[in-house]
Design a protein around this nucleic acid. Structure first.
Lengths: 193, 193
DNA sequence: AGGTACATGTAAGTCGTTACATGATTAC
DNA sequence: GTAATCATGTAACGACTTACATGTACCT
């Protein structure tokens, strides 16, 4: 039975720490932050976030205090500790693990040969719709983040550039998804003729 | 204890079935096919593939036969059954689950604020190198697939277009990764000044 | 003598998803 | 009255990773 300091890559753990750089928050609010600012490169459910916060607190990387409320459930506010910041700093310099796409729609398209062409094309087109919705949301967040500044100004002057840099990746990703869905759906429909 | 026909999305299961459309193969060879033709949208280790093949055989979606060899370990050749084809056909028309990026490097960049800037920039640049290597591999596979035909000719005449359609997504994905890494690393280095 | 290719797995553990539980308040 | 918001979790299961096991043949 080997003792594992459980975690090799542990991206979720560090995504939570990074989100706490913004200041003290509850698990509930963190889950919403994840949904808007983190979702474009790492997805996590509230349950995972609560569990991760508990583990981080046990490890001293985060400290929590309970706030008693009336007419609302009590809540716990967490903030990152100096040890948490140090951990995040050394982790950001460590080698990342290779990423792959893991897209359900692509698996379906890979199997085009065995598919009902119009049905598959419709699936791909529906997927394009979801990517368009995501892109619209990301563009709104981009506007809020930039706050009227040009990209160049923002990158020079903003206190934290990380969220903007990652958001740009999410935007390009969704733009590519939309373009690919359009093209692939057309190619699949061509087969039906 | 509810009986689950285990699998909601089950993309790996269907990726294996789709790879078997090409004809009878061993788990060993499938693992290599996954490494080249499937890796750009779904990654899986040999152990997962062996396990999946066993489950597919138990479910009648795949049938296997043992080939006794001398001076090499015996092997099992699998092929897709009519039931497997039918399953694949109906699955390709079913709603896919939303995909997200899940990129370790992006989590690190999100935490730029807490990072050592030159070290993080170096991590991002190293990541660009890996994406360039992947892109080079994908481009070679593209050449092989097209076999001298133009894209338009290939899409009109090829018996199976799925692998080409998904490969194109992988190529664009890596091109975007390279461009983003270049841009993000520069923006992070700017902070160090 | 050491490494790679062939060929198939088991065991243990971690990560992620689904379903469920609780219960008051506020907005439509 | 119905749904959403606030707020935090547990339990069970499925997906994925890491480490390990086995043994021959061929190449350098």
């Amino acid at each position: 039975m080997r003792r594992r300091c459980y975690g090799f890559s542990m991206a979720l753990r560090h995504a939570v720490l990074a989100a706490l750089l913004d200041g003290e928050t509850t698990g509930y609010d963190l889950a919403r932050v994840f949904d808007v600012a983190v979702a474009n490169f790492w997805h996590a459910l509230p349950q995972q976030i609560y569990a991760e916060l508990a583990r981080l607190e046990a490890g001293g990387l985060v400290s929590g205090r309970t706030v008693v409320q009336e007419s609302r459930p009590n809540k716990r506010l967490f903030s990152i500790t100096p040890a948490g910041r140090a951990e995040l700093r050394s982790w950001t310099a460590s080698p990342p693990r290779p990423t792959s796409l893991k897209d359900d729609v692509l698996v379906r398209v890979f199997a085009t040969e065995a598919a009902d062409f119009p049905a598959l094309a419709a699936v791909v087109e529906a997927s394009r719709g979801r990517h368009e919705a995501k892109l619209a949301r990301y563009r709104k967040i981009e506007e809020l983040l930039l706050g009227g500044l040009s990209e160049e100004e923002f990158l020079r002057t903003a206190p934290a550039v990380g969220p903007y840099l990652t958001l740009r990746r999410g935007i390009r990703f969704e733009e590519e998804n939309i373009a690919w869905c359009t093209w692939a759906a057309a190619a699949i429909r061509l087969r039906a003729e």
